[in-house]
Amino acid sequence: MIEFLFFIKLIVAIGLVIGLSLLAENVSPKVAGILSGYPTGSAITLFFFGLEVTPEYAAESAVYNMIGLSAALTFVYVYYIASKYIKTYTIPLSAVSAILGYFLVVWVLHHIQVNTYLAILIPIAFSFLYIYLFRNIQNITILTKAKLSYKTLFVRAFFAALIIIVITSVPKFVGPTWAGLFSAFPTTLFPLMLIIHISYSTEHVHTVIKNVPIGMFSLIIYSLTISIVYPLYGIYWGTLMSYGAATAYLLIYTKIKKTIEKQKGLPLRK
Rank of each mutant, 00 (worst) to 15 (best):
S242A: 11
N139D: 15
A146E: 05
G33N: 01
L118S: 01
I235K: 13
P267K: 09
I81E: 05
F128H: 02
K257V: 07
I67Y: 04
P39R: 07
S127H: 09
V76R: 02
S97L: 14
V27S: 04
N26T: 05
I256C: 03
L93Y: 15
I164G: 00
G50A: 01
K270G: 05
L16K: 06
F103T: 01
T88Y: 05
S242H: 07
L23P: 04
A161M: 11
V114T: 02
F47D: 04
H110D: 09
L224H: 09
I165V: 13
I18S: 05
V105F: 09
G68F: 06
K9S: 02
S183C: 03
H206C: 06
T152A: 13
S227M: 05
P171E: 08
G180F: 10
L192R: 00
I67D: 02
S149G: 15
L35V: 03
Q113D: 12
Q113T: 11
A62C: 09
I8F: 08
P123R: 08
L194P: 11
I8P: 08
L133A: 15
S201W: 04
V229Y: 04
L162H: 14
Q263P: 06
P92T: 04
P92M: 00
V114M: 10
T152K: 14
I34E: 00
G37M: 07
G19S: 04
K257W: 10
I195S: 15
T88M: 13
F159M: 05
S21W: 10
M1I: 06
S218Q: 12
L100I: 14
F158I: 14
A161F: 11
A184V: 08
H110K: 11
F49L: 05
A32N: 02
N65G: 12
K258S: 07
G41N: 06
V205I: 14
S199H: 10
L121D: 01
I112T: 01
F103D: 04
I252R: 01
F173G: 07
